[in-house]
Simulated assay, not measured.
Amino acid sequence: MSQTEFAVNFFVALFALLDPVGNVPLFAAATAGAKSKDRAWIALYIALFAFGFLTFFYFSGLSLLEFFGISLPAFRIAGGVILFLLGLEMARDDFTSTFAEAADAPNGTGRAYARKRFERMIVPFAMPLLIGPGAISSVVIYASQARQFGLQGAFVGVGVIGAVAVATLLSFLATPILSRILGRIGLSIVVRVLGLILCALAVQFILAGFAESTSGFIRPSIANPYGH
Rank of each mutant, 00 (worst) to 15 (best):
A146T: 15
V140H: 07
Y142F: 15
Q204E: 12
V193N: 08
Y142M: 09
L196M: 13
I185W: 05
L173P: 01
R192K: 13
F205N: 15
F155G: 05
C199H: 03
A211M: 07
G132N: 10
G134L: 12
F149D: 04
L170P: 00
I197S: 04
V190Q: 09
F210Q: 13
A146M: 14
R192W: 01
V139G: 09
A208N: 15
A211P: 03
E212V: 11
G186A: 11
I197K: 03
S171Q: 04
V191W: 06
G186D: 05
L196F: 15
R147E: 14
G195R: 04
G195P: 00
V193H: 03
F149R: 02
I177K: 01
Q152G: 07
V164W: 02
L182F: 14
V140E: 09
A174F: 07
S171F: 04
T175D: 03
Q152E: 14
I177E: 02
I181Y: 11
G134R: 07
Q152N: 14
V140G: 08
G195D: 06
R184M: 14
L187V: 12
A200K: 04
I206L: 09
G195A: 03
F205Y: 15
Q152V: 14
V191D: 06
S171M: 02
G216E: 11
G132D: 10
A154H: 08
S144M: 13
Q204T: 09
Q204C: 06
S179C: 11
A165F: 11
R147F: 06
F217V: 13
Y142A: 08
C199M: 15
S188I: 01
F217K: 04
I185V: 13
I197W: 00
Q204W: 11
Q152K: 12
A143G: 15
I136P: 00
L151G: 13
L187Y: 06
I161D: 10
A146P: 14
P133A: 14
L173F: 00
L173D: 00
V160G: 00
V139T: 13
L169W: 10
I136A: 01
I177Y: 02
V193K: 03
G159H: 07
A167Q: 06
G195H: 02
A165L: 12
V193C: 08
G162Y: 12
S215L: 12
R192S: 01
V166S: 13
T214P: 07
I185Y: 07
S179H: 11
F172P: 04
V160Y: 02
V203R: 00
S215T: 13
S213M: 13
A146I: 15
G159C: 03
R192P: 00
A143W: 10
L151V: 15
G209S: 08
A154W: 07
I136R: 00
S179I: 13
R192E: 01
Y142V: 06
L207C: 07
F155Y: 10
I185M: 09
L169H: 06
R184H: 13
S215N: 12
L207N: 02
V140D: 09
Q145K: 14
R147I: 07
A167H: 01
I177Q: 03
G132F: 04
V158N: 00
A165I: 12
L201I: 08
L182G: 06
A200R: 04
G216S: 06
G132R: 01
V164E: 06
